[in-house]
């Protein structure tokens, strides 16, 4: 859920900042009004329906299990509002910022094993080298990943999961699926999540997988950290069509991630 949403925020973030474009100040009329719309070129015909066609395309997602999916979406929303987010807020309140950052870095470093495997599966040489460098630097200099010196040393974070690997080799997305607690996915990516989980258990990097099964609190901490880093809240779109909008954004974000 993190990775798609990290990119999902892209579209939500279009309201973030863009730079200055060299742009002549247009002449103001006697009222001081600069007629901004007069700079635009409009379609010569009344209505080309560019918006409507794009809107219909947004809705064009293969979702044969839409009924159950919507019920799970509703369930996730309630679980998030009533249980998960209160826990996350409590965690943010009691944990110093520096400790939160350290915890986040630590799990991110553990996750780099999966990123490396999938990057290698996709035969992305340069990227695999960068992730290997990250693992080496952060696990040693970064004290088992609590700090992230690698990013400052020019080895930035990459996200690769098995769903992306499958997509890279041309496996289609399959039907849209909403997973309980984990949120939007599709058949391919849900399968990928299972593979990623299994390979993490197999590698058992820094004994995190073993320790987690002995002590479930570690898994809970990881989940809380994950949710804490997600810039999404249910109801944020304030739209009766949130399900449709999230579904589109998930698919769009995954397409971009797979192409990258």
């Amino acid at each position: 859920m993190t990775k798609p949403f990290a990119c999902l925020s892209l579209s939500l973030c279009l309201s973030a900042t863009l730079p200055t474009l060299a742009h002549a100040n247009p002449e103001a009329d006697s009222d001081g009004f600069t007629h901004p719309l007069s700079q635009l070129q409009f379609n010569p015909f009344m209505d080309q329906q560019a918006f409507e066609r794009a809107g219909f395309e947004v809705l064009d997602v293969y979702d044969p299990w839409t009924g159950p999916n919507r019920r799970i979406y509703q369930f996730n929303q309630r679980a998030d509002e009533w249980i998960i987010m209160p826990v996350v807020r409590g965690y943010r309140y009691v944990t110093p910022d520096l400790a939160q950052q350290g915890i986040s870095n630590f799990f991110s470093n553990v996750g780099d094993i999966g990123n490396l495997l999938n990057s290698a599966f996709q035969l992305k040489g340069q990227r695999s080298m960068e992730i290997t460098a990250r693992l080496l630097i952060n696990t040693t200099l970064g004290a088992f990943g609590l700090w992230d010196p690698a990013s400052k040393m020019g080895a930035p974070k990459h996200h690769e999961d098995f769903g992306q690997t499958l997509g890279h080799y041309g496996v289609g997305a399959g039907p849209y699926v909403v997973l309980p607690f984990l949120g939007p996915s599709n058949l391919r990516d849900a399968g990928g999540t299972v593979v990623d989980f299994a390979s993490e258990q197999g590698v058992d990097f820094l004994n995190v997988a073993t320790a987690s099964s002995a002590n479930p609190a570690i898994s809970v901490l990881r989940a809380v950290d994950l949710r804490s880093g997600l810039p999404f809240e249910y109801g944020q779109t304030n739209s009766p069509f949130e399900y449709e909008k999230v579904r589109f954004l998930y698919n769009a974000a995954r397409k971009i991630q797979i192409a990258d």
């Binding site: 990290a6 990119c7 925020s9 892209l10 973030c13 279009l14 973030a16 900042t17 863009l18 730079p19 474009l21 340069q126 990227r127 930035p156 974070k157 990459h158 996200h159 971009i256 991630q257 990258d260």
Partner: peptide, 14 residues
């Protein structure tokens, strides 16, 4: 070479 969304990225994009 990587996906990252922030103010600097949008500035660069534009």
């Amino acid at each position: 070479g990587r996906i990252e969304v922030n103010e600097a990225m949008l500035a660069e994009f534009q």
